[in-house]
Measured scan of single mutants.
Amino acid sequence: QRITLKDYAMRFGQTKTAKDLGVYQSAINKAIHAGRKIFLTINADGSVYAEEVKDGEVKPFPS
């Protein structure tokens, strides 16, 4: 399943989102408010992988 960072954070909370991605909650808040195009893939085992689309390139998040 693929979902935006904002939607994932709204569904699970910023604290869990940060923990799942290995970053601080403040980084999640800042990324959402900056309007960054970050998409999360939720794997069947429950693990989460995030990618950011920037300038036409897709890069892992966090980099």
Rank of each mutant, 00 (worst) to 15 (best):
Q1A: 11
Q1F: 11
Q1T: 14
Q1S: 12
R2M: 09
R2E: 05
R2P: 08
I3H: 07
I3V: 12
I3G: 02
I3M: 15
I3F: 14
I3S: 05
T4Q: 07
T4F: 06
T4N: 07
L5C: 02
L5H: 00
K6V: 12
K6W: 09
D7A: 09
D7L: 07
D7V: 06
D7P: 00
D7S: 07
D7E: 14
D7Y: 06
Y8S: 00
Y8H: 03
Y8N: 00
Y8G: 01
Y8C: 02
A9L: 13
M10H: 12
M10T: 11
M10V: 11
M10A: 14
M10S: 12
M10W: 09
R11S: 07
F12H: 10
F12R: 03
F12T: 02
G13L: 03
G13I: 01
G13P: 01
G13H: 01
G13V: 01
G13R: 01
G13W: 02
Q14L: 15
Q14T: 15
Q14W: 14
Q14V: 15
Q14S: 13
Q14C: 14
Q14K: 12
T15M: 14
T15A: 15
T15H: 14
T15W: 14
T15E: 15
T15C: 14
T15K: 13
T15P: 11
K16I: 05
K16T: 05
K16L: 03
K16Y: 02
K16E: 05
K16M: 04
K16F: 02
T17L: 06
T17W: 02
K19F: 09
K19G: 07
K19H: 12
K19T: 09
K19Q: 13
D20F: 04
D20M: 11
D20Y: 04
L21H: 01
L21V: 06
L21D: 00
L21M: 04
L21S: 02
L21C: 04
L21W: 01
G22V: 03
G22E: 04
G22F: 05
G22T: 04
V23G: 03
V23K: 02
V23H: 03
Y24L: 13
Y24Q: 15
Y24E: 15
Q25C: 09
Q25P: 15
S26Q: 10
A27R: 07
A27C: 15
A27V: 15
A27S: 11
A27K: 08
A27M: 14
I28K: 00
I28R: 00
N29A: 15
N29P: 07
N29V: 14
K30T: 13
K30R: 14
K30A: 15
K30I: 11
A31F: 09
A31E: 02
A31T: 04
I32F: 03
I32S: 01
I32Y: 02
H33S: 13
H33F: 12
H33E: 14
H33P: 02
H33C: 12
H33Y: 13
H33K: 11
A34M: 12
A34L: 10
A34I: 08
A34D: 15
A34V: 08
A34Q: 13
G35Q: 11
G35C: 08
G35Y: 05
G35H: 10
G35L: 07
R36C: 06
R36K: 06
R36G: 04
R36E: 04
K37P: 11
K37N: 12
I38N: 00
I38K: 00
I38C: 01
F39M: 07
F39C: 07
F39R: 03
F39Y: 13
L40N: 00
L40M: 09
T41K: 06
T41R: 07
T41F: 13
T41V: 14
I42W: 07
I42G: 02
I42L: 10
N43F: 11
N43C: 11
N43T: 12
N43K: 12
A44V: 12
A44E: 13
D45K: 04
D45S: 06
D45E: 05
D45W: 05
G46A: 05
G46I: 02
G46C: 06
G46L: 07
S47L: 07
S47C: 07
S47F: 10
V48R: 03
V48P: 02
V48W: 03
Y49D: 07
Y49V: 11
A50F: 03
A50R: 01
A50P: 02
E51V: 12
E51A: 05
E52A: 02
E52F: 03
E52T: 03
E52K: 01
V53K: 06
K54D: 12
K54C: 14
K54G: 10
K54H: 12
K54T: 14
K54E: 13
D55A: 09
G56P: 02
G56E: 07
G56W: 05
G56L: 06
G56A: 07
E57H: 12
E57S: 12
V58L: 10
V58G: 05
V58D: 04
K59D: 04
K59L: 13
K59M: 14
K59S: 11
K59Y: 15
K59C: 11
P60G: 06
P60L: 07
P60F: 06
P60N: 06
P60E: 06
P60V: 07
P60H: 06
F61N: 02
F61I: 03
F61S: 02
F61Y: 12
F61G: 02
P62V: 05
P62C: 05
P62N: 05
P62K: 04
P62Y: 04
S63N: 14
S63V: 10
S63M: 12
S63F: 09
S63K: 10
